[in-house]
């Protein structure tokens, strides 16, 4: 009995001190100067621009990775081919790479001065690094695995019987995909898209290397928040962190709803 209470105290204490108290503290500190004051440190031209930039690049990267993710999951689930394990390895690679290394990789390939194809792109008027395309690429790179990882197991479990049946009844590939496959994978896909979005909105390391961090131009929202700290304005950082934190909490809530739906429907 005593050991049970010791274990409870340890488990709750560990999570409490590591996660609970710090999160409560940041909310409290962000709102201590009053809600409107907190809002005003985010509601600046730079803050709004950073938020828009992050949301726009996230939207593009999420669409790209969703199309790619579903496509690759279909290929991996339905076909055996020699390079399959290489593809899986490459898709999973972002999970074991430091975000800073991701930024470096993109720089070494796309930068106009140092990159493999940067010079060729610059000659055609396309700047990638320290510009919007670089931010989109960094977003897409770090969040690449999530849709594939969530959709692939669902597809493997699903099998191809219903798809074959639809085909023999005369359905074309489009009809089969939209009427049979997509409805079957929808919860896994939704879960993967949410994970992708959460990962992109919070990305910092790769952005620090690739975006250029120019206020009002290429500064993402995480960089906007961290800039408050670098400029010795913690109140602003707390407020910014609260906004980002609330977005993540919203996604987390959506994730848990998706998970329970998915379990019920499968």
């Amino acid at each position: 009995m005593i050991s049970r209470w010791l274990l409870r105290a340890f488990g709750f204490g560990y999570v409490g001190f590591l996660v609970g108290i710090p999160v409560v503290a940041v909310v409290w500190r962000a709102l201590a100067p009053g809600f409107s004051s907190a809002w005003h440190s985010v509601d600046t031209p730079a803050g709004i621009h950073a938020l828009e930039l992050t949301l726009e690049s996230a939207a593009i990267a999420v669409v790209l990775n969703t199309l790619f993710g579903v496509g690759v999951a279909l290929i991996l689930a339905r076909h055996r081919f020699p390079g399959a394990s290489v593809v899986e390895m490459l898709v999973d690679l972002p999970l074991s790479l430091s975000p800073v290394v991701v930024g470096l990789a993109l720089t070494l390939f796309y930068s106009s001065r140092q990159g493999w194809i940067g010079g060729w792109l610059t000659a055609r008027g396309i700047e990638v690094i320290f510009a919007f395309p670089g931010i989109v690429l960094a977003s897409a790179f770090v969040s690449l695995p999530y849709v594939v990882r969530e959709v692939l197991p669902v597809l493997q479990e699903l099998g191809t019987d219903s798809e074959r049946a639809a085909e023999t009844l005369g359905a074309g590939p489009f009809t089969v995909f939209f009427r049979i496959t997509l409805p079957a994978i929808r919860w896994g896909l939704a879960y993967g898209v949410l994970l992708t979005t959460a990962r992109i909105l919070g990305e910092f390391g790769a952005m620090s290397v690739v975006s250029g961090n120019i206020v009002g131009q290429t500064q993402t929202f995480t960089q906007f928040v961290s800039a408050y700290f670098t400029n010795y304005d913690p109140a602003g950082a707390y407020a910014g962190a609260l906004v980002l934190g609330l977005i993540s909490m919203f996604i987390l809530a959506a994730l848990s709803v998706t998970r329970s739906r998915g379990e019920r429907f499968s």
């Binding site: 940041v26 959460a198 909105l201 919070g202 990305e203 910092f204 390391g205 995480t222 928040v225 961290s226 700290f229 913690p234 950082a237 707390y238 910014g240 962190a241 980002l244 934190g245 993540s248 909490m249 996604i251 987390l252 994730l255």
Partner: peptide, 9 residues
């Protein structure tokens, strides 16, 4: 779910 910057803050 929390961005790493938020974790730091």
């Amino acid at each position: 779910a929390l961005p790493t910057v938020v974790a730091g803050v």
